[in-house]
Design a protein around this nucleic acid. Structure first.
Length: 1048
DNA sequence: GGCCCCTCTCTTTTT
DNA sequence: GAGAGGGGCC
């Protein structure tokens, strides 16, 4: 019990707080019995009155602190509330039940474990979530709408999770979704968009657009089948003894609905209920509140919120909740509207109001007796004569440059940077300006969530681990990784030295059975090749050997530690400008591995690497909230993140349509929901974005700069956000066009453009390269490679960097093999009959077994299953049509066309008659008719498959042991398309096409002879260009080009 | 108006 | 990899 003196101190402190309240605040605080709704606009002292009212209840009623329940949204909210309450009423503040929705529900669960049935439940980690959903997908049949036609069966994993999450936060059942889908589809043919408005082709006015309708039906089929998986997901979670955040609320809601005694307990305990940020509650949370108060006709519930600041609709927050609440208790409810704003100048408030007044779905519109005009009361800024500015710039470079220059000037005057915020809608809008701040060494804060697994440093570390693991399992199986690792800058090996070794290897590797790993310890060779820094390489070689030898003795953590310490990485980090951040990254990674080791005590490197790959595939960030923080830095925030904060200067950045106004696009990685199910239509979406803009504006205390650019940096015109026009219409503010002088722009451009260069490597010694080229002949693949990126050609075909086979390519090989054996066996049989389907599939399985090393266990099972199924169908479909006058796998070498040596292997040559043949190339994977396109202006090289077919014609026609001519070519897909058909794309091959591809062949050959291949391409995702530019390998799905042509 | 085809881009955040 | 927006054509 606090002593008398302390009590007195707090009593008088609290009284002085009460005395300072304005009229509306006082009304709200002194209201104790019955429902009340407080509309608290920005800067009106929301937390203040909530806590003051708690104090009031304790002061004036018999209620004990534990009779009061105060719910808010975030931990930060709880913290702020508790702190304020401590100031007002002292230590009793700790006894008041202030919770987030989730911590409240978790408490209910913990207090009633016998009801919830299980004691051993644990929260679900991100990784486990992925594993559960993946297992679910793996069990689906090939024909399932979510699997069919997908290269990656986990493709919908993210969308599924999104759907399940939404079903939980909205308390939707599968049946509920089915009903909404049915209603949607039923009404669809009556919609304007689905009816022809005038005659078109065979259709007359009034006909239904069947194709468009069908598209929608397909989408809904996917959603329906996804929703059907929800119970299975829940079951799997239960079996795994896991629950997630949304379950906490959902289970409590269910308990409240099903068990009256349990609900009654809580209803009796909580005599007073206070809810903060009511506009952010989602469906399930709101229902929990409703249950807690439904016992009384006139519940003592005190709800604070601001409908104009409801910006979290995407996570289920519902504006409608506030209005429903008001209407439900209309008879007894008291409504208070807080109008005094203690933050901003009147000028800023008036401008903000001009924007938000355009919203129609507002309390003030629905309840007409309200006038929501904020009055500035801040003692420093209220009467400031400074007006907000609307700046228009020529382009984003000018906009960013000007803002940064302005901040730089403020910084030099000694103005505290933490009173400045740059606010935007999406993180990507801030990329360029952050780069500028960095280059100008202006400190800034951002709390963007970053996945450290994406950072080059960790990718490199992982590659190193992967190398050690692979080499341990099978020596010399990871030469490609080793070559990449040699380039890591922290090892300190010189590029010149690697070049010398590469040339040596390219020349001698094949003939002498050499391996990179073995030459790393070859001192004699180093001398011979005049290696500059042999010791560095020797040191590295020693480390690699040691790690491989001890691979099984070291624990995963120890191995990692050795690797970081001994490789030079740690040294490099310690001397780096950004060492605090980099150390944080390494530490976080270490912590993660440690945690994984605790979960799986015998965690192997293999398992760790697989876990990490899973995380990549599912964009699971390594729980890192990267905050770049300086005590006095400019605040870089999204409008969402800025909520609740305030700054003297606010720059609303890049206020253009494309970023601030709603996107019509459905989010990628989500299912499309029917609009009978989603809560908002297009106008609602615009209002939501307007609220976001309003939140951004109302962060400013004194100075507000709203800016946009007329064009993007490429010159494409941009439209300013409609909110700016609304300001122009309802205020006296005018657009101010800002023109920057050329020097300032140029300087910024130079600062920013450094990174855009095309990758380039040094020319190598002519004679040696000529030596490497001596036996080179152009294939369809190498031609393709060169046309796409000469630098990649150089690495792959000149230096012949070893590359491991991807699982997709290995699967393709096995499929090709089965086809080839099918025709071989037919030709060898006396009766010229094809072997049975079983034999056909056994051949596929045989080759798969041979390729097994290139698959993980799961990949192998899946590919085996897929291959069997496709080949079986293929056999049954085509067995009676297969041609018999054929030559499978025709391997052609030593062809010279216009002085260019050519080679290649043709999957199947079909002899049509004495003079003509037809060329067939088998493909696995999904069909893409772009690849069969002839050259256009934009794509002067044409599609890869088209070029390949013409190349084969040239190859075949110039092949000496043949007297016939290739008349036509065909791409035959061994997998079915969306409509379960095997697609065959046939083309007659003309002499004109031969001339076009012939031209490419001779042009490329000229360049190769001139060694004109040291320059990269412009593709951001190019594997080798990224390797040269940043020493990292980008391992994205975009790297399918290489295995596409699968010829040689 | 309606469709084909090419091109461009791929949020926001808390528990 | 997919969906939307814009240009071009009927």
């Amino acid at each position: 019990m606090p002593d008398k003196q302390t009590r007195q101190y707090y009593t008088s402190a609290f009284e002085s707080v009460i005395a300072q309240l304005n009229k509306e605040q006082e009304l709200a605080v002194n209201h104790i019995e019955g429902p009340m709704l407080v509309i608290a606009g920005p800067g009106t002292g929301k937390t203040h009155i909530l806590t003051a009212r708690i104090g009031r209840i304790l002061q004036q009623t018999d209620a004990a602190p534990y009779n009061i329940l105060c719910l808010t949204f975030t931990d930060a909210g709880v913290l702020a509330m508790r702190e304020r309450l401590l100031e007002f009423i002292g230590p009793d503040a700790h006894k008041v039940h202030i919770y987030t929705y989730h911590s409240f529900c978790n408490t209910v669960i913990q207090e009633n474990l016998e009801y919830f049935g299980r004691h051993d439940l644990e929260p679900l980690s991100d990784l486990e979530r992925v594993e559960i959903i993946r297992r679910l997908l793996e069990q689906l049949p090939q024909e399932h709408p979510l699997i069919k036609g997908k290269r990656d069966i986990y493709y919908h994993e993210g969308a599924l999770y999104d759907l399940f999450k939404r079903m939980k936060t909205e308390n939707w059942t599968s049946e509920f979704i089915y009903n909404k889908i049915d209603a949607y589809l039923k009404a669809l043919p009556e919609r304007e968009d689905y009816i022809y408005k005038r005659k078109f082709k065979d259709f007359v006015k009034g006909d239904i657009k069947e194709a468009k309708l069908q598209e929608e039906v397909e989408r809904m089929k996917k959603l329906r089948s996804a929703a059907a998986l929800f119970p299975i997901y829940k079951e799997a979670m239960y079996k795994a003894r896991r629950y997630d955040f949304d379950d906490m609320v959902l289970w409590v809601l269910k308990a409240f609905q099903e068990n009256e005694a349990l609900l009654r307990n809580y209803q009796e305990q909580y005599l007073y209920l206070l809810v903060d940020e009511y506009q952010d509650t989602n469906g399930t949370q709101n229902q929990v509140i409703q249950h807690l108060i439904e016992y009384w006709d006139k519940p003592n519930i005190f709800v604070v919120g601001d409908d104009d600041q409801s910006i979290f609709e995407f996570q289920g927050a519902r504006l409608k909740n506030i209005l429903d609440f008001y209407q439900k208790y209309e008879k007894s409810i008291e409504l208070v509207l807080l109008k005094d704003n203690y933050r901003s100048s009147q000028n800023i408030l008036d401008t903000s109001i001009a924007v938000i007044n355009n919203n129609e779905k507002r309390m003030v519109v629905t309840l007409e007796n309200l006038e929501k005009k904020l009055a500035a009361q801040n003692q420093f800024f209220a009467t400031s004569t400074i007006k907000p500015h609307l700046f228009e710039y020529h382009n984003r470079l000018a906009e960013n440059t000007d803002i940064v220059n302005r901040i730089e000037a403020l910084h030099q005057e000694g103005f505290p940077l933490n009173e400045i915020a740059i606010i935007y809608a999406k993180h990507k809008q801030a990329r360029a300006i952050i780069a500028l701040l960095e280059k100008k060494k202006i400190p800034y804060n951002t709390k963007r969530r970053i996945n450290i697994l994406d950072l080059p440093m960790l990718q490199n570390l992982r590659l190193f681990l992967q190398y050690i693991a692979k080499e341990y399992r099978q020596p010399h199986s990871a030469e490609e990784e080793l070559f990449q690792i040699l380039h890591f800058d922290f090892l300190g090996i010189s590029a010149q030295d690697i070049g010398r070794l590469s040339l040596y290897m390219a020349k001698h590797q094949a003939s002498e059975d050499l391996y990179w790993r073995s030459i790393l310890q070859d001192k004699k060779l180093f001398k011979l090749l005049k290696i500059e820094k042999p010791d560095t390489i020797l040191e590295f070689g020693k480390l690699v050997d040691e790690l491989i030898i001890h691979f099984n003795n070291y624990t995963t953590l120890k191995l990692l530690e050795k690797l970081i310490n001994r490789s030079g990485l740690l040294k490099k980090i310690i001397h780096h400008d950004d060492k605090t951040w980099l150390l944080q990254v390494v530490a976080t990674f270490f912590d993660f591995v440690k945690k994984e080791t605790e979960r799986h005590p015998r965690l192997t490197i293999y398992r760790l690497l697989e876990t990490l790959r899973n995380m990549d595939a599912n964009r699971i960030a390594l729980g890192v909230n990267k905050t770049i923080y300086s005590d006095n830095g400019v605040n870089m925030l999204t409008a969402f993140g800025a909520k609740g904060l305030e700054f003297q200067y606010v720059f609303l950045l890049d206020c253009v349509k494309e970023n601030w106004e709603p996107t019509t696009k459905g989010m990628q990685g989500r299912f499309t929901y029917p609009d009978t199910l989603t809560y908002s239509n297009i106008e609602d979406a615009m209002e939501a974005r307007r609220r976001l803009f309003y939140v951004g504006m109302t962060r400013a205390k004194e100075q507000l700069y709203i800016s946009y650019s007329k064009k993007d940096n490429k010159g494409k015109p941009l439209g300013r956000a409609v909110f700016i026009d609304e300001i122009l219409e309802d205020t006296t503010l005018k657009i101010e066009e800002k023109i920057l002088d050329k020097t300032a722009l140029f300087e910024a451009q130079v600062l920013l453009l450094k990174e855009l260069q095309v990758a380039q490597v040094e020319r190598l010694d002519e004679a040696t390269v000529n030596g490497l080229l001596a036996n080179f002949a152009l294939s369809a693949s190498s031609l393709n490679r060169f046309l796409n990126c000469p630098l990649s050609f150089y690495y792959q075909y000149i230096l012949r960097i070893p590359s491991s086979s991807s699982e997709a390519a290995s699967y393709g090989t096995a499929m090709h093999f089965a086809l080839r054996r099918l025709f071989d066996k037919m030709l060898l049989s006396e009766t010229k009959t094809f072997p049975t389907e079983q034999v056909f599939i056994e051949d596929f399985e045989w080759e798969m077994k041979r390729q097994k090393g290139n698959f993980t266990k799961k990949e192998y099972q899946r590919r085996l299953k897929a291959g069997r199924s496709f080949l079986s169908k293929y056999y049954q479909y085509y067995i009676d049509e297969f041609p018999k006058k054929v030559k499978p796998e025709l391997d052609i070498r030593n062809v010279v066309y216009k002085d260019v040596p050519l080679k290649g292997a043709i999957d199947l040559v079909e002899y049509l008659d004495k003079n003509y043949v037809h060329l067939i190339d088998y493909k696995t994977g999904s069909l893409d008719d772009k690849k069969l396109k002839m050259p256009t202006k934009a794509k002067p090289y044409g599609g890869n498959y088209w070029r390949q077919l013409v190349f084969y014609k040239i190859l075949f026609d110039n092949y000496k042991s043949s007297n016939s001519i290739a008349q036509s070519g065909e791409i035959a897909y061994l997998e079915t398309d969306k409509t379960s058909q095997f697609v065959k794309e046939k083309r007659t091959l003309s002499s004109k096409e031969v001339d076009v591809v012939g031209g490419m062949i001779t042009a490329v050959w000229q360049k190769i002879k001139k060694h004109d291949f040291y320059q990269g391409c412009e593709d951001k995702n190019c594997k080798w260009c990224n390797f040269v530019k940043r020493n990292i390998m980008s391992d994205t799905y975009n790297d399918i080009e290489a295995e596409e042509l699968d010829d040689l």
